[in-house]
Simulated assay, not measured.
Amino acid sequence: MDSIHAFHANTIDGENISLEAFKGQLLLIVNTASRCGFTPQYQGLESLYREFKAQGFTVLGFPCNQFGAQEPGDSREIAAFCTSHYGVSFPLFEKTHVNGDHTHPLFQYLKSAAPGLLGTQAIKWNFTKFLVGRDGKVIKRYPPSASPAMLRQDIQKHLAL
């Protein structure tokens, strides 16, 4: 697999879609959680999405309960929380494993294409972010501590390409 377009994932509503639907868009793929110290980043992610979506930018949120059980709800609860607290309108997906034996193939690909600090592939915490080019190839990995605002310049640069 040489791009994210080869993968499928279930939306928060349970619909299985091909990520080829996002071909030609610059993507920010994020593993999220509703009860994390980084949860307020939803606001910044939504802000980036609204600012740049007309230029072909999309945020894809993948809730994950693997770090401190910080995403305990079901899909309906997660969607309601994201909408009511942060006005999230970007696509959300079903709860996803990003590490371990049940890692979603998309995250296996993302981690191998853009290893973390010191070459480790494991995702260390919620709100790890992957910037993916219009061609579906990973451009860069960002740690949870990188606020959405810190990614703005990279997003603008790659939208202009």
Rank of each mutant, 00 (worst) to 15 (best):
N10M: 11
T32Q: 09
K111Y: 02
I12P: 01
S112K: 15
I78T: 04
K140D: 01
A79M: 12
H97R: 12
P115G: 03
A146N: 13
T32C: 13
G119W: 04
A54V: 04
G37W: 09
Q55L: 05
I12A: 11
F22Q: 12
W125F: 09
H85G: 01
C82W: 10
K129I: 01
P148F: 09
K157A: 13
L131G: 10
Q108K: 15
A113H: 00
D74T: 00
C82Y: 10
F90A: 07
R134G: 02
S89P: 00
V88A: 11
K53R: 13
A33E: 01
L27W: 10
F38W: 12
F38V: 02
L45R: 05
F67S: 01
L131K: 11
L110I: 03
S89C: 05
H102Q: 15
A9M: 09
C64D: 00
H102K: 15
F93S: 08
S89R: 14
G44T: 04
E94V: 01
Y109T: 01
L19M: 08
L106A: 05
E15Y: 03
E51A: 10
P91F: 12
G37Y: 07
P115T: 02
S47E: 13
A122S: 08
G116Q: 01
L28G: 06
H5K: 14
F62T: 04
V132M: 13
S3K: 09
L106S: 05
H104F: 06
G61W: 02
A9L: 07
S145V: 09
Q41D: 03
D2E: 15
Q41M: 08
N99T: 03
G87C: 07
Q156D: 01
L117A: 11
L151M: 13
L60R: 07
T58F: 14
G44N: 11
Y142K: 08
D74N: 14
K53Y: 10
G73K: 06
Q70L: 14
F130W: 03
I78Y: 11
L28R: 07
L92P: 00
